[in-house]
Amino acid sequence: MRVTVQYMGQLGHLAERSEESRELPEGASLLSLLEGLSAQYGEAFGHIVFTGENRIRPSMMVLVNDVPVEKTTPPVLRDGDQVTLLAAIAGG
């Protein structure tokens, strides 16, 4: 299946893109996607996405089809889903 991923904040800077379409195994979860992205874009990316306690970082907002997801119970993804990762920013 294919999902679209949009990046905001430093995640887009680290991934060097604003958006991309990605192929995922059928039934893959949001966690599996985030782990794959972290492996691909490196530790700094993974550090923004995950805490050391194996959790999605509370300060990062995750939207699936524009709806914020409950980060403690990350959903299974479906073909055509749009995932948006909003990393915290503070530029002034």
């Binding site: 430093q10 700094a44 550090h47 923004i48 970082r57 509370p58 300060s59 990062m60 907002m61 990393a87 915290a88 920013i89 503070a90």
Partner: peptide
């Protein structure tokens, strides 16, 4: 509430 901690890497 939005940022419970100082986000890393800023």
């Amino acid at each position: 509430c939005i940022y419970p901690e100082i986000p890393p890497g800023w």
